[in-house]
C-alpha cells in the first residue's frame, strides 16, 4: 500500500486533520472522512456539478479534486451556507420558488449560484444560465432554479 498523507483542511470554519490515501477525492473526504454528506456525488466524471464546493474561494467539482490538493486550504460546502440557524437567502429562495424537484443537484446549484452572486450581484437571466452551466438538473427543473437565483439576488441586493 502506498504511504498515506496527513492533510489539514478547514471545512466551513472547522479544522480537520486526517491521515488519508493520496487517491482519496475531496468529495469522498467530505462525505466519508468528516461525515458531511450534503455534497452529493452525481456523475463522478466532472460533468454534472452535484459535488460542487468552494476551495479557497474557487468553485470546484470535488469529484475532480484530490483531498491532498485541499491540504492547508479552506473548503465551503452546502452545510456552511446556513448561519446561526438562519438559511442563506439562496436557500430560502430555492424553497420559496420551488427551485428543486428531487433535490439531488441542489447542493451544487446553491454553491454555484452563491459563487455567481459574489462575482455578479445582479445577474441577468442569461448570466444566471451561464453561471450554472456546470450544474445539471436531472429533473430539468431549470426554470424555477433560475427564478430562485434571480429572487435571491434581488433580496440580497436589498439587504
Amino acid at each position: 500500500m502506498p504511504e498515506s498523507v496527513v492533510v489539514d483542511v478547514n471545512v466551513n470554519g472547522v479544522a480537520y486533520q486526517r491521515e488519508i490515501e493520496p487517491r482519496l477525492l475531496l468529495v469522498e473526504f467530505l462525505r466519508e472522512e468528516i461525515g458531511l454528506t450534503g455534497t452529493h456525488i452525481g456523475c463522478d466524471t466532472s460533468y454534472c456539478g452535484a459535488c460542487t464546493v468552494t476551495l479557497n474561494g474557487r468553485l470546484v467539482k470535488s469529484c475532480t479534486c484530490l483531498a491532498v490538493q485541499a491540504d492547508g486550504g479552506e473548503v465551503c460546502t452546502v452545510e456552511g451556507l446556513e448561519q446561526n440557524g438562519e438559511l442563506h437567502p439562496l436557500q430560502e429562495a430555492f424553497s420559496e420558488h420551488h427551485g428543486l424537484q428531487c433535490g439531488y443537484c441542489t447542493p451544487g446549484m446553491l454553491m454555484a449560484s452563491k459563487s455567481l452572486l459574489e462575482e455578479n450581484p445582479s445577474p441577468s437571466r442569461e448570466e444566471i444560465r451561464k453561471g450554472i452551466a456546470g450544474n445539471l438538473c436531472r429533473c430539468t427543473g431549470y426554470v424555477n432554479i433560475i427564478k430562485a437565483i434571480d429572487a435571491a439576488a434581488v433580496k440580497m441586493q436589498g439587504v
Partner: peptide, 9 residues
C-alpha cells in the same frame, strides 16, 4: 473551456 468549476482549477 468546460464550466466555471473546471476553469477555476
Amino acid at each position: 473551456i468546460a464550466d466555471k468549476q473546471v476553469r477555476s482549477m
